[in-house]
Amino acid sequence: MNPYQPVPAELVEIIEESPTITTYRLSPEKPIPFATGQFVELCVPGVGEAPFTPSSSPLVKEEMEISIMHVGEVTNHLKEKTQVGDVLGVRGPYGEGYPLEEFKGKDVYIAGGGVGLAPLRSLIYALLADIDSYKNVRVKFGARNPEAIIYKDEVEKWLKGDELELQLTVDSAEDYPDWDGEEGVVTTIMEDPDADIESGVSVVCGPPIMMKFATLKLLDMGYDPDQIYLSMEKNMSCGVGKCGHCGIGPYYVCKHGPVMTYDKLEDYDEVFD
């Protein structure tokens, strides 16, 4: 099979999540089953490709959702020129996702920021589908402001339900008088005396600066580097460990990641740059 060949995928729905983030629901010509945390290359014909971890449940095979922050050439083109019915390209899935088998029986402590909730939503779906297999699932999520919180319906549902413990915070609620939740960056709500740190696992996904400080916070809380699962983001062109761009030390994020434990990365610079 040609690893550089995308599969045509019809765009079936566009969901505005926040002023800067949109979810695209795609129906690939043939199903592209993925494990939660793996990524795909989404291709806008003639414009280019970019890597994304699907935000939908890995249990849904026929369709996939990809949540995108509009910051680059491909993503801005998606926002400005793409409509329902357009045909995009998808190839993958690539890399290593979250090792759910290793999470079983353990406390799962998840820290997310901004668009980082996209891969985490997929992970949360996967955890909820088999929630009795995990001890406690705690999710700490931070957004820039109340308007920037994505997946508002799901978030609402998770807050009400008792299957997982979700706590939200916003960096600033200055212009949002209705916000009655926490204010401050996500690390300010990352304290849990009840969390079983010793035999637990932690997961971090978000913008690089958030990942850096959340990782430091987790280390501070007592997690060992090999208990901290990071969703790494680097420039990934081929997706299959050949083109070189996403290298960190001896690893290619596309092949050995994107989900990688911090112990593999801590000795290399540029991890969070």
Binding site: Y4, C43, P45, G46, V47, G48, E49, A50, V71, G72, E73, V74, T75, D86, V87, E233, K234, N235, S237, C238, C243, G244, H245, C246
Partner: peptide
């Protein structure tokens, strides 16, 4: 790196082009 050239509506040709890690754009992200 993989570079796509548009060849009409929703169609393209993709090329694999040698790249250099000495270029500033090599590891650039969105």
């Amino acid at each position: 790196y993989l570079a796509d050239r548009e060849v009409g509506e929703e169609a393209f040709r993709r090329f694999r082009v040698w790249d250099s890690c000495q270029y500033n754009a090599y590891a650039r992200l969105a």
